[in-house]
Every structure is written in C-alpha cells, then in structure tokens.
Computed example of a mutant assay.
Amino acid sequence: MIYLEKAKKRRHGPDLEKYIRVERRYTTYREASRFYSIQYYRLVRLAKEADACWKIRKTVLVDLDKLDEYIENFKDGGNESWDT
C-alpha cells in the first residue's frame, strides 16, 4: 500500500521590504543587542524610550539610526537612569 504525503507548507515571515524605507537601518531586538553589546531587555527598554521601535505584525524592528541619535543625545544629557 502506498501512502501519499501532503506537501508541507513552508512558513515565511512577512515581506517587510514593502513596509520599510531603504535609507534607514532596521534590525530586530536580538541583533541590535548583539550589535551594541548590551543586555536584551536593557536594549528593549532603551529602544522604547528612544521611540525607535516599529511593530509589523508579530515582528518588532528597531530603527538603528534613531537609536544612535538617542544614545548620542543621551550621553550628552547626563541622564542617570542608564545604570538602573
């Protein structure tokens, strides 16, 4: 007896290229935390403070240009909440 198997559907993430602008740099929380060498949850909090998060369906993208600008201004401002 021969059993026929159904072809498995491949799951693909959303096509983010149609949502994002090309001239900006976007990445996920995990990749950004590795890039900046800081803890994951600290980066999440920092990105939310910088308003650099962009949620598309179940994926959250971090605008690295906006985050860089926030970190530069943050360093000059002397905000003490960074160590907490």
Rank of each mutant, 00 (worst) to 15 (best):
V60H: 11
R11A: 13
D63F: 02
A32S: 07
E5S: 09
K18W: 01
K48I: 08
I56C: 07
R42G: 08
L46D: 03
L4W: 03
K9S: 08
V44L: 05
Y3K: 12
C53K: 08
I20N: 04
D76V: 01
K66D: 11
D65R: 00
K55Q: 15
E5R: 09
N79K: 00
K18I: 12
K58V: 05
Y29N: 12
V62W: 05
I20C: 05
R42H: 11
A7Q: 15
D63S: 02
L67K: 01
Y70Q: 00
L43G: 00
D15N: 15
E23Q: 08
F35E: 10
R30G: 11
W82F: 13
F74I: 02
A50T: 04
V44K: 03
E49R: 09
K6V: 14
F74N: 00
L64P: 13
R57V: 07
C53H: 05
T84Y: 08
H12F: 10
Y29T: 14
K18Y: 03
I71K: 02
D65Y: 02
L4I: 11
G78Y: 00
G77V: 00
L16I: 09
S81W: 04
E80A: 03
R11I: 14
D65N: 02
Y70E: 00
L16Q: 10
S81T: 08
R30Y: 13
Y36W: 03
E5M: 07
K8T: 10
K48M: 10
R10M: 12
T59Q: 09
A47S: 07
R57I: 03
F35D: 10
V60D: 13
R10D: 15
L61R: 08
E5L: 08
G13K: 09
Y19N: 13
T59I: 15
K9Q: 09
K66Q: 15
T84G: 13
E69I: 05
K8C: 04
S33T: 07
R11Q: 11
D83H: 12
E80Q: 05
A7D: 10
W82M: 11
W54I: 14
Y29I: 11
F35C: 03
L67M: 01
M1C: 11
I38P: 11
E72K: 01
H12C: 14
P14Y: 04
K6Y: 02
F35N: 04
Q39V: 06
N73P: 01
T27Q: 05
N79H: 02
D76E: 13
N73Q: 05
D68H: 02
K66R: 14
D15K: 05
T27I: 09
Y3S: 10
H12Y: 14
E31G: 06
K58R: 15
R45I: 08
E72C: 06
G77E: 00
V60Y: 08
Y40P: 09
I71F: 01
N73D: 03
R24N: 14
E5G: 12
E17F: 06
K9E: 13
E31N: 09
A7E: 15
R42L: 10
A52N: 03
E23N: 11
E31M: 13
D15I: 05
S81N: 15
I71C: 05
K48P: 12
A50N: 06
K75D: 12
